[in-house]
Amino acid sequence: MLTVQSMLNARGQTTKWPANMPSEKWYRLFKKRHPGVVLCTPQKLGKQKALVRKSSIMKCFADFQATVTDFDASILLDPSRIYNCDESGFSLDTSFGKVLSFVGTKFVYQVGSEQKTMITVLVCCSATGHFVHPMMIYPGTQFRGFRLQEVFDDSFITKSKNGWTNQSIFLDWLQQVFHPETAHVKRPILLLVDGHISHQSIGAATFCKDNGIILYALPPHASHLMQPLDVGVFNTMKAKWRKSVKKQNELEIVTKRTFALVFKDAYETTIKRDLAPQAFRNSDIYPLDPNNIEWQKILPDITAEVATRARGCREGR
Rank of each mutant, 00 (worst) to 15 (best):
residue 273 R to L: 14
residue 68 V to S: 10
residue 294 E to L: 07
residue 47 K to I: 04
residue 118 M to V: 13
residue 180 P to H: 06
residue 85 C to H: 08
residue 114 E to S: 08
residue 224 H to C: 11
residue 311 R to D: 14
residue 246 K to L: 14
residue 274 D to M: 07
residue 213 I to K: 09
residue 218 L to I: 03
residue 165 T to L: 05
residue 245 V to W: 08
residue 250 E to Q: 12
residue 194 D to N: 14
residue 130 H to F: 06
residue 121 V to R: 00
residue 231 V to W: 13
residue 139 P to A: 11
residue 183 A to M: 12
residue 247 K to E: 15
residue 110 Q to S: 11
residue 138 Y to F: 12
residue 46 G to D: 13
residue 270 T to F: 01
residue 187 R to P: 07
residue 235 N to M: 06
residue 125 C to D: 03
residue 191 L to K: 05
residue 185 V to C: 07
residue 79 P to S: 04
residue 59 K to Y: 03
residue 313 C to A: 13
residue 101 S to D: 05
residue 23 S to C: 11
residue 43 Q to I: 05
residue 283 S to L: 10
residue 85 C to S: 12
residue 184 H to C: 08
residue 110 Q to L: 09
residue 315 E to N: 12
residue 299 L to C: 11
residue 284 D to A: 11
residue 98 K to T: 14
residue 204 A to R: 04
residue 247 K to F: 11
residue 61 F to I: 09
residue 234 F to T: 00
residue 83 Y to K: 01
residue 256 K to Y: 00
residue 119 I to V: 15
residue 258 T to I: 02
residue 237 M to L: 15
residue 21 M to E: 02
residue 82 I to Y: 06
residue 94 T to H: 02
residue 200 Q to D: 15
residue 96 F to V: 02
residue 303 T to L: 11
residue 37 V to H: 04
residue 301 D to A: 12
residue 89 G to S: 12
residue 241 W to Y: 03
residue 189 I to P: 10
residue 92 L to P: 01
residue 160 S to M: 00
residue 271 I to Q: 03
residue 266 A to M: 02
residue 255 T to R: 03
residue 137 I to K: 02
residue 241 W to L: 04
residue 156 F to P: 01
residue 112 G to M: 04
residue 104 G to I: 10
residue 311 R to S: 15
residue 252 E to H: 12
residue 3 T to V: 06
residue 160 S to L: 06
residue 123 V to H: 03
residue 198 S to N: 05
